[in-house]
Amino acid sequence: MTLRRRILILATAVVLLGAVGVFAVLRASSRAAEKDRAQDGGPRVTRGEVALAPGDGGRRIVFRNMAWGPHRDELATVAADVPEGPRTASGVNCLRFHSAAGTGICLRADRGGVAESHRAVVLDAHLEERSSHPLAGIPTRARVSPGGRLAAWTVFVGGDSYAGTNFSTRTSILDLRTGRLDASLEDFAIRKDGKEYRNADVNFWGVTFAADERTFYATLATDGKTHLVRGDVVERTVTTLRENLECPSLSPDGTRLVFKKRVPGLPAEAPWRLFALDLASMRETPLAEERSVDDQVVWSDDRTVVYSLPGDFGADLYALPADGGGVPKRLMPSALAPAFLD
């Protein structure tokens, strides 16, 4: 065999080996992409950096990813103007989540040991744990105040649905600057119908904070009825304002609450409709959502609220005008507990 022929054979072999290597890399990349894609053919989910601080990338949504795959239940992010686009997952798991001003509250499950336990974890802007607090039950609601000073969470300590009567809740408020934890709003002084009030059946849930980092609104349940209350974290007091309001959410401008309300004649397992309450006039306006919503809505801006409804993989997010007009539109599939970050 001539030297020239040997060189030609060697060169051909090198080219073939290179082609095989390139094919193997492309095949591996394709399989990785397939693994990161929701099994229902939904949005692509890949591991990357997720931050809670405002950035140069424009407005974003951070939420619990519900799409099936290796990143299910992780906090993920998408661009707010492309909510159904590719998702970046953080590796941080949360059952409930909220964030404001670069601070997050993550209610998570710890599955080690004999029984599952739960914690409330305060996250910094890089999703690093700042503090952790054991929970007495199953996470259901979480909120951070607009300025990032206060965090609140609610857990079920009995039963599994607001729609029934056999449940109890515990709601806590944490001052993130001082570290003071009010473990239960039941310890606050209650003023109901103009009088001091105490009752063993009192339950609170669904805190929403005002911009003054002191005032909050929540649901108080007692004697078979629910009430909207306004609270003061400094004075440790709550005052009833109105009956039949649950899970209020205060608008960014502080003028309105959107809440769920039990409507007579609806099925016991799906009794709620969404309403808006103008705090100046105390006038209620029904929103254009005919399905029962068992969620505490989030305001995406001063005009629109976002909430979850059951979906193929747990929950989907819908957007709706807060003035009573418009129609519900699906914002994101397979997502829960959103926070809108500028």
Results as ranks from 00 to 15, higher is better:
residue 84 E to F: 00
residue 176 L to A: 07
residue 169 T to N: 09
residue 308 S to A: 15
residue 242 R to D: 14
residue 323 D to V: 02
residue 328 P to T: 03
residue 195 K to T: 14
residue 36 D to S: 10
residue 338 P to K: 01
residue 233 V to T: 15
residue 95 L to E: 12
residue 101 A to L: 05
residue 89 A to P: 09
residue 44 R to P: 01
residue 230 R to L: 01
residue 279 L to H: 03
residue 214 R to L: 13
residue 208 T to E: 11
residue 48 G to S: 06
residue 84 E to C: 01
residue 1 M to K: 09
residue 45 V to S: 09
residue 108 R to Y: 00
residue 55 G to T: 12
residue 235 E to R: 15
residue 45 V to C: 12
residue 67 A to F: 00
residue 186 E to W: 00
residue 108 R to L: 05
residue 33 A to E: 15
residue 216 F to E: 06
residue 228 L to R: 12
residue 16 L to V: 15
residue 92 V to I: 13
residue 111 R to E: 15
residue 181 L to N: 07
residue 64 R to G: 04
residue 170 R to G: 00
residue 49 E to Y: 00
residue 179 G to C: 07
residue 288 A to V: 10
residue 185 L to K: 02
residue 207 V to R: 13
residue 286 P to K: 08
residue 173 I to P: 06
residue 327 V to I: 09
residue 142 A to E: 04
residue 69 G to N: 07
residue 105 I to E: 09
residue 10 L to I: 13
residue 37 R to E: 13
residue 334 S to K: 10
residue 297 V to D: 01
residue 106 C to S: 11
residue 26 L to F: 06
residue 29 S to R: 14
residue 156 F to M: 09
residue 266 L to P: 09
residue 39 Q to D: 14
residue 221 A to H: 10
residue 237 T to H: 12
residue 186 E to T: 14
residue 298 V to K: 10
residue 334 S to P: 00
residue 43 P to H: 03
residue 127 L to T: 11
residue 193 D to N: 12
residue 121 V to E: 13
residue 125 A to Q: 13
residue 116 E to P: 00
residue 48 G to P: 07
residue 253 D to M: 11
residue 142 A to L: 11
residue 224 G to K: 03
residue 268 A to W: 02
residue 151 A to V: 14
residue 176 L to S: 10
residue 256 R to C: 07
residue 245 L to T: 14
residue 272 W to C: 02
residue 105 I to V: 15
residue 229 V to H: 12
residue 209 F to Q: 05
residue 251 S to V: 14
residue 50 V to F: 02
residue 59 R to G: 08
residue 158 G to A: 14
residue 94 C to I: 02
residue 23 F to A: 15
residue 109 A to H: 02
residue 336 L to D: 15
residue 249 S to V: 12
residue 50 V to D: 04
residue 259 F to Y: 15
